[in-house]
Amino acid sequence: MSDKQEMIDGLKQIVKPYIQDDEAFKNLNEDTDFINDLKINSANLVDVILDIEDKYDIELDNESMDKMLNVKAALEVINAKVSEK
């Protein structure tokens, strides 16, 4: 649980500069959608992906990016990539 919460907090720091809905950001959880809830514009979603790559020292190929529309999917992709290292 604490691991997962830590991951969510880490992701929260990453998305913070790009969010446009403070309320959804405050309540960020696994089901939060980057575009529909946080209102991150799609060009900035590219920044989120690049920031994730930098922070976790992983590379997100197109296939992994494809699914990264919400917090849960992002955490799954990060975990999978980190464990591959």
């Binding site: 979603l45 590219v46 494809d66 699914k67 529309l69």
Partner: peptide
């Protein structure tokens, strides 16, 4: 980028799930 975004909005109406993969 605006070509990709607008085309995606057409494509999504043909029934696929949402996705984020600009180079697709």
């Amino acid at each position: 980028w605006s070509m990709k975004e607008s085309a995606y909005k057409v494509f999504i109406q043909t029934g696929p799930d949402r996705f984020f993969n600009p180079s697709r």
